[in-house]
Design a protein around this nucleic acid. Structure first.
Lengths: 161, 161
DNA sequence: ATTAAATATGTTGCGCCGCAACAAAATTAT
DNA sequence: ATAATTTTGTTGCGGCGCAACATATTTAAT
């Protein structure tokens, strides 16, 4: 079952999102002989608690209920790990983190972020990617990583539905 | 004279960049009856001291030689002012600021950032903008502001010239 | 099993980023 | 001159992010 993005028209059982994310993570880590530890699981679950990007210190606060000894490095290490294997993304304009809804595909980091409800939907639009690649290429620039963050209003929050 | 972007093929007299940026700023402020104070001038000049985005506290350090009483708010106020009138941009992925090379046009904030030399070139590519708008529209998202930051290697820094 | 190597987590501490809140000064308008 | 507006000075704080070192845990080698 694929992960829905934040702006799916039909409401979804969000627990499925979390479960799927954990399943995918478990599988990826197994394939690569990496350790999907309890802490990493918990951090990923917390990030997937909603479709809104969440800050590291908010994660830390939630984590402390189960791991009273957790400190900032506890969280940042888990975040680094999850980013490294492509399970979460960092939203640069928010200093926050969100679950990746395209964990298998090659992702470039395209996001629509609702200023009203805070939800972030990940895109994977080749036409955007192509336009960026072409424009960069025209200047002789070798593009390696794209950060595209578009703020605005999601379907549920915009005035006319 | 237009402001060159960071990756112009021919080297340029960078003092011209600074002078032009100040001239443009002076004119815009005059038109809008806003005060282009010494501090704001100085901050804009410091930002334009190179094509590399510069952090607020680096600006502060440089500013202190002339304004020993300068403090973080001194800089952030000037930055807010300059951003407000579109003379500089904030690079979200770097927590840094760079001069706007399209101060007259409606700008969306598209940047190519060289990971080697740190220079940032501003784009204003309608095809990127269009692709983003269309993609957002397909999901019913009302796009208001775009943040596009592409990291990679500039022509001078990439392996094969 | 024991030991060694690798990996993950605990702990302390710090530097950078950004701004709120209030006070003082400077500019502009009346 | 006086008042209103705008800018700058000053103090202080909270969030973000990680370096550096210590400890614990897991995995690999003997």
């Amino acid at each position: 079952m694929p992960l829905p993005h934040a702006f799916t028209v039909e409401p979804h059982d969000h627990q499925d999102c979390i479960d799927t994310a954990i399943d995918v993570a478990t599988q990826i880590c197994a394939e690569r002989s990496m350790r999907f530890t309890k802490i990493r699981q918990r951090v990923l679950t917390l990030i997937w608690s909603g479709h809104q990007p969440i800050g590291a210190y908010a994660i830390l606060e939630a984590l402390k209920s189960e791991y009273p000894r957790a400190a900032p490095p506890t969280v940042y290490r888990a975040l680094d790990f999850l980013i490294e294997i492509g399970l979460i993304h960092r939203i640069e304009s928010m200093n926050a983190f969100v679950g990746c809804t395209h964990p298998d595909e090659r992702h470039t980091g395209q996001f629509l972020i609702c200023e009203s409800c805070g939800a972030a939907a990940e895109l994977d639009d080749p036409s955007i990617n192509d336009a960026v690649q072409r424009s960069a290429g025209e200047l002789g620039f070798l593009a390696q990583r794209q950060m595209i963050e578009v703020t605005g209003l999601c379907p549920d929050c915009r005035p006319n539905g």
